[in-house]
C-alpha cells in the first residue's frame, strides 16, 4: 500500500491535469492544483529549514572545520527572516507592509547585500570560462577543431573590436555580423538547438507517460 497509494495519486493527478489542459471549462482544476502545490511547498520549507539548522548546528556543536561559517549562515538566515517577516511585515516603523517596498530594511538588505553577492558569484563564470577554454578547447579531432573554430569566430567577431579589425582588412559591405547571424547562429546553431529541443521534448513525453502510468517508480524510492 505504501507504494500503491502514491502511484494512484500520481496517475489520477496526471490524467486530470492532461484532460483539464485540453478541456477549457476544466482549466480551473490546473490552477487549483498549482495552488495546492504552492501550499505543499510552503510546508516543505519548514522541513528544509529544520534540516539547515540541524546540519549546521551539529557542525557548530562539534566544532567541525570552518564552524564559524556555519554560524554566519545561521545568523544570516535568522536575520533575513526577522527583517522580512517580523520587522517589515508587521510594519514596525517601516514604510508599508510589503517587505520588498522601497525604504524597508529588507529592501536595503536586498539592494546592498544580496545584489552584490549574487553579481559576484555570477561573475565567477567569466573566470571559469577562461580556465575551462584553456584546458578543454584543443584541436584533437575533426569535431573538436570545428567546435574550436566556430567558437573562435563567434568570440572574436561578435565584439566591436573584432568587427573593427575585420573591416580594416576586408572591403566595405563584407559584414561578418551578417555571416555569423545568418549562417552560424541562424543556421548551425538553430539546427542543433532545434534537434536537442525536439529530442528532449520526445524524451520528456516518454518519461512523463511512464511516471503517470506508474512504469517509472525510481523517483519514489524503493524498487
Amino acid at each position: 500500500m505504501k507504494r500503491q497509494i502514491p502511484l494512484l495519486i500520481t496517475f489520477l493527478s496526471g490524467i486530470t491535469l492532461v484532460i483539464q489542459y485540453y478541456v477549457l471549462p476544466l482549466n480551473w482544476i490546473g490552477k487549483t492544483f498549482a495552488g495546492w502545490f504552492q501550499a505543499i511547498t510552503a510546508f516543505a520549507y519548514v522541513l528544509a529549514a529544520i534540516s539547515l539548522f540541524a546540519v549546521n548546528g551539529k557542525k557548530i556543536r562539534d566544532r567541525a572545520p570552518g564552524w564559524l561559517y556555519n554560524i554566519v549562515l545561521l545568523v544570516s538566515l535568522t536575520a533575513t527572516l526577522y527583517m522580512g517577516l517580523i520587522c517589515d511585515f508587521i510594519g514596525l516603523g517601516y514604510p508599508g507592509y510589503q517587505p520588498i517596498d522601497e525604504g524597508t530594511a529588507f529592501d536595503w538588505m536586498f539592494q546592498y547585500i544580496y545584489n552584490p553577492l549574487s553579481a559576484t558569484m555570477f561573475s565567477l563564470t567569466a573566470f571559469f570560462i577562461a580556465s575551462a577554454s584553456f584546458r578543454a578547447f584543443k584541436a584533437r579531432s575533426i569535431e573538436s577543431t570545428l567546435l574550436l573554430s566556430t567558437a573562435f569566430i563567434v568570440m572574436i567577431f561578435r565584439v566591436p573590436l573584432g568587427e573593427y579589425l575585420w573591416l580594416k582588412v576586408m572591403p566595405d559591405g563584407w559584414s561578418i555580423s551578417w555571416f555569423i547571424d545568418t549562417f552560424i547562429m541562424g543556421g548551425f546553431n538553430n539546427a542543433g538547438q532545434r534537434a536537442i529541443q525536439i529530442s528532449s521534448a520526445i524524451g520528456l513525453i516518454s518519461v512523463s507517460l511512464k511516471i503517470i502510468l506508474g512504469v517509472e517508480r525510481s523517483y519514489l524510492g524503493g524498487e
Binding site: 505543499i40 511547498t41 516543505a44 520549507y45 522541513l47 528544509a48 534540516s51 519514489l220 524510492g221
Partner: peptide
Amino acid sequence: RAVTFSAAQEVVRDA
C-alpha cells in the same frame, strides 16, 4: 528546493 529535498531523502533512504 524544499519538496525535492523531502523526495530525495526518501529516495536515498529507500535505496
